[in-house]
Deep mutational scan, measured.
Amino acid sequence: RELEAFAERFKQRRIKLGVTQADVGSALANLKIPGVGSLSQSTICRFESLTLSHNNMIALKPILQAWLEEAEGAQREKMNKP
């Protein structure tokens, strides 16, 4: 249940930020998480549509959570600048 809720929230917030699935995939490489490079657009799509295996969903959740927090933080900074 929690994974499904996160996937839905992730998709809504990604769209609100105006970021494509492909952008998310390539931006993950910038997070410098050990062992994590970029991901394909189709992987992000399959995460959002819950068609990845349960284990893959569990593995990707903290990575996508980290990206989302960073992206939303950058958005807030941009909006707070005069």
Score class of each variant (00 low, 15 high):
R1L: 08
R1Y: 08
R1N: 13
R1P: 05
E2P: 02
E2C: 04
E2I: 04
L3I: 11
L3G: 02
L3C: 00
E4G: 06
A5R: 12
A5P: 02
A5M: 13
A5F: 14
F6D: 02
F6V: 03
F6I: 03
F6W: 06
F6E: 03
F6P: 00
A7I: 10
A7L: 01
A7H: 01
A7F: 01
A7N: 02
E8S: 13
E8P: 01
R9E: 11
R9W: 06
R9C: 12
F10W: 04
F10Y: 02
K11W: 01
K11F: 01
Q12H: 07
Q12N: 14
Q12D: 10
R13D: 04
R13G: 13
R14E: 00
R14P: 00
R14Q: 00
I15C: 09
K16P: 00
L17M: 08
L17S: 02
L17A: 03
L17Q: 01
G18T: 00
G18A: 04
V19T: 07
V19S: 09
V19N: 01
V19A: 13
V19Y: 10
Q21R: 09
A22M: 04
D23H: 06
V24C: 03
V24P: 00
G25S: 12
S26H: 12
S26T: 07
S26P: 05
S26D: 14
S26W: 13
A27E: 10
A27I: 04
A27V: 06
A27C: 13
A27D: 09
L28N: 02
L28A: 03
L28Q: 01
N30F: 14
N30A: 13
N30K: 15
L31C: 09
L31H: 11
L31G: 05
L31T: 14
L31K: 14
K32P: 05
K32N: 08
K32I: 06
K32H: 15
K32M: 13
K32R: 09
K32C: 07
I33K: 05
I33Y: 05
I33V: 14
I33W: 07
P34D: 11
P34S: 08
G35A: 03
G35K: 12
G35F: 15
V36M: 05
V36L: 12
V36H: 02
V36G: 06
V36R: 05
V36C: 05
G37V: 07
G37P: 11
G37Y: 09
G37F: 06
S38R: 14
L39D: 04
L39W: 05
L39T: 06
L39R: 02
L39P: 10
L39G: 04
L39A: 10
L39M: 13
S40H: 06
S40F: 04
Q41L: 07
S42I: 10
S42C: 08
S42A: 13
T43P: 02
T43L: 14
T43I: 14
I44Q: 00
I44A: 00
I44F: 01
C45F: 07
C45A: 14
C45S: 15
C45H: 15
C45Q: 14
R46V: 02
F47P: 01
F47W: 03
F47V: 01
F47E: 01
E48V: 00
E48S: 00
E48C: 00
S49H: 09
S49L: 05
S49M: 07
S49K: 09
L50E: 04
L50T: 09
L50H: 14
L50D: 03
L50G: 14
L50N: 10
T51P: 00
T51C: 07
L52C: 03
L52A: 03
L52R: 00
S53I: 05
S53L: 02
S53R: 06
S53F: 00
S53K: 04
S53T: 05
H54P: 14
H54D: 10
H54Q: 11
H54S: 14
H54V: 14
N55M: 11
N55F: 05
N55V: 09
N55Q: 12
N56W: 09
N56Q: 15
N56S: 14
M57L: 10
M57D: 00
I58T: 14
I58C: 07
I58H: 05
I58L: 10
I58G: 06
I58S: 11
A59H: 15
A59P: 03
A59Q: 14
A59W: 05
A59T: 11
L60H: 03
K61V: 07
K61H: 04
P62S: 04
P62Q: 03
P62C: 03
P62M: 01
I63S: 05
L64H: 00
L64Q: 02
L64D: 01
L64A: 02
L64I: 03
Q65H: 09
Q65V: 06
Q65R: 06
Q65N: 08
A66S: 12
A66C: 09
A66F: 07
W67S: 01
W67R: 01
W67A: 03
L68H: 03
L68A: 02
L68E: 01
E69G: 05
E70T: 10
E70A: 08
A71P: 02
A71V: 13
A71M: 12
E72K: 02
E72T: 04
E72V: 03
E72Q: 05
E72S: 04
E72Y: 06
E72W: 03
A74F: 10
A74K: 11
Q75W: 08
Q75T: 10
Q75M: 10
Q75F: 09
Q75E: 11
R76L: 13
E77N: 08
E77W: 06
K78R: 14
K78A: 15
M79H: 09
M79V: 12
M79R: 10
N80E: 15
N80R: 10
N80M: 12
N80V: 15
K81E: 15
K81H: 03
P82H: 03
P82V: 09
